[in-house]
Computed example of a mutant assay.
Amino acid sequence: MISFSVRSTLARVLMILGAILGMLMIAWMALYLSVAQLNWLESVRGTTPYFACGRALLYTLIVAGWAAALRRRPTPADQQRLKRLGLIGFSSIILVELSRV
């Protein structure tokens, strides 16, 4: 019988691999889109400011949640993990926004 910690680690690894597979499938499908399939974007370009406000609100909520998690005074190991996760998340947001330019 598999112990609980091994089972939870296995579940985490499978979830991460599933997320990576999903991202790769989306990227693969995006590579094969034709120009005709991208014409629907023309009508969406007028609503770009709304998407920018939504992204700004989402990023604000993420930062507020991260700060609230740090304020709970977790153990030093968990606090280090939270800081590392925040740095990875912040870097990811920067990379996503820079790729939109």
Rank of each mutant, 00 (worst) to 15 (best):
R81K: 07
C53N: 14
S92R: 02
R7K: 13
L41V: 12
I93F: 03
L98K: 03
G89Y: 07
G18R: 11
L41D: 08
F4E: 14
L10E: 10
R100C: 07
G46Y: 07
G22R: 02
I62Q: 14
R84H: 03
S8L: 15
V44W: 07
S3D: 15
A27W: 09
K83E: 13
G54A: 15
V63H: 04
V35G: 10
G46E: 09
R84G: 06
I88E: 07
R72G: 04
S5E: 14
S3E: 09
I94H: 01
R45A: 08
G65Y: 03
K83C: 05
G89N: 15
F4A: 09
S99D: 04
S43T: 08
T9S: 06
R7S: 10
F90R: 00
P74E: 15
L33N: 01
Y50V: 05
G86R: 01
A77W: 10
E97Q: 05
R45Y: 00
L21C: 02
S8A: 13
P74C: 10
E97N: 06
W66Q: 13
W40C: 09
A11D: 03
L70M: 14
R73T: 12
A68C: 05
I26G: 06
T9K: 07
V13T: 12
R55M: 05
L98G: 00
R71N: 03
S34L: 06
I94S: 05
A36D: 15
L70Y: 00
Y32I: 02
L41K: 10
L95T: 06
A52T: 02
S43M: 08
T60H: 02
R100I: 07
L85T: 12
T47M: 14
F90D: 07
A64M: 07
W40R: 05
R71Y: 04
S5P: 00
A36P: 00
E42D: 15
L10W: 11
L38H: 01
C53G: 13
R72K: 03
V101E: 14
R55T: 02
M15E: 14
L24W: 12
I20Y: 02
G18S: 15
V96M: 15
L70V: 08
S5V: 01
A27S: 09
V6W: 00
M29T: 04
T75G: 12
R45G: 01
E97M: 11
G86L: 09
A19I: 11
G22Y: 11
S91N: 06
L85S: 14
C53V: 04
V6R: 05
V63G: 06
M15Q: 11
R81V: 01
A68G: 00
L87S: 12
L21K: 03
D78G: 10
P49R: 05
L33P: 01
A11L: 10
L41N: 11
I16G: 02
R55H: 03
